[in-house]
Nucleic acid binder design. Structure first.
Lengths: 214, 214
DNA sequence: ATAAGCATCCCCGAAAACAGGGTTTATACG
DNA sequence: CGTATAAACCCTGTTTTCGGGGATGCTTAT
């Protein structure tokens, strides 16, 4: 029995490449291809005849992207498997997808063999993530747990950002219409909270968190 | 008259996608496809019959990569145009390729239209780089020039590294067996040299230069 | 040889950072 | 509804940084 697939990607070239790979496998039937997530949603909504086994989707697409599409599919029909392919390895995206119960994730520069292996694995009921992706996910989780207790308030983020941008306490106070004593308190609390020793530590934290540009 | 192309990419899927796009254009003739640069070198060396117009190549390939291949082609036959496609936008790679006189650079996630436009532009004798790539190249050049005059001595690098690692002036002095006044002088000179305002600026510089880990 | 650059050390005053307190105002929760 | 808890705010010392200086040898290149 053949498996029914849907592919969503706004890049014609990737689509063609994927189709050419899947053509060599006789037991995959491409039901539908789409240029963005909305088309897939519509197709799945209308279609009641055929059983859909797997949706392969890009992350970045116009209108409804791969992340939203995956969430929608998992909400709509738990039996439809999803495989997301992406150019990049953004930990946030990977995390978001895994939390949304995606069945697999591949980089677009994967080889033919890995594509086929991923699809077969997922259709067999298991999840498929490359070792690299697993590492990124775990590392992200681990770091988050270590830093989870540290939650900065809006004000604290404002202050640490300005500190890292090389403003002095007085300048920050002027910008935020606060007393310089207040800013000093924030600096002090931040140093305690983040377990660093001085401005250098605060600056490094701000950079790591992306509050300032390198 | 048809243009003769060669394509080099170790990813079957990308290759298939590219072929499917080029198939729609009647005046492109695919002479040869290869899984790595070495095959292309061999093909060009042996082939004396046909005029080769354009080599499209990936950056990351086993053995002879796209950068080496481009250099080799430009050394061997200046009439052969080159178009490099890559997953990533590493400024170093882009810079290296442009210095080696590559005729065009595209990201692999480009759309069909851009691929065709790039190829047509290059075959017409012009170079093709997307705006994004041009920006990366220029930014990289510009920053390099700005920072070229700034050369830190070994000692200065030691000191700025320790500063960014959150050590106090006294601690740095102890570690380096110097007077704290000396360290103060270094800090002061570094602030002047690097045109920053304080420790935060020094820390950011140290991170940018990789003197300290994040 | 001599100028230029590097490494080292020192002083001073103003400004900022740091450490140790504190109060008031939201906000969450039983 | 009250009360814990966190957020936002302020003050007072002491220490450190920062921006001016200047000085002495020691290499390196012209």
């Amino acid at each position: 029995m053949k498996h029914n697939l849907i592919i969503a990607d706004d890049h014609k070239m990737f689509l063609d490449g994927l189709l050419s790979i899947l053509k060599t496998e006789s037991n995959y039937n491409i039901l539908f291809t789409a240029k963005h997530g909305g088309h897939v949603q519509k197709y799945i909504s209308i279609n009641t005849e055929e059983k859909i086994d797997l949706v392969i989707t890009d992350v970045t697409m116009p209108e409804v992207d791969g992340i939203a599409l995956n969430k929608w599919i998992k909400k709509t029909d738990r039996n439809i498997k999803t495989l997301v392919v992406s150019m990049h390895n953004d930990p946030k995206i990977i995390d978001d997808l895994i939390e949304s119960n995606v069945d697999g994730y591949l980089q677009k520069n994967a080889q033919k063999e890995e594509f086929l292996k991923a699809i077969a694995t997922i259709l067999g009921g298991e999840k498929y993530f490359s070792k690299e992706i697993k590492d990124i996910y775990l590392k992200n989780k681990f770091e988050k747990n270590k830093e989870k207790e540290i939650k900065l308030t809006k004000r604290e983020v404002e202050v640490i950002s300005l500190i890292a941008e090389e403003f002095t306490t007085q300048e920050i106070a002027d910008q935020l219409f606060l007393s310089k004593h207040t800013i000093e308190s924030y600096r002090k609390n931040l140093i305690t909270k983040l377990d660093v020793r001085n401005l250098a530590g605060l600056t490094k934290y701000a950079i790591k968190k992306g509050y300032v540009s390198s």
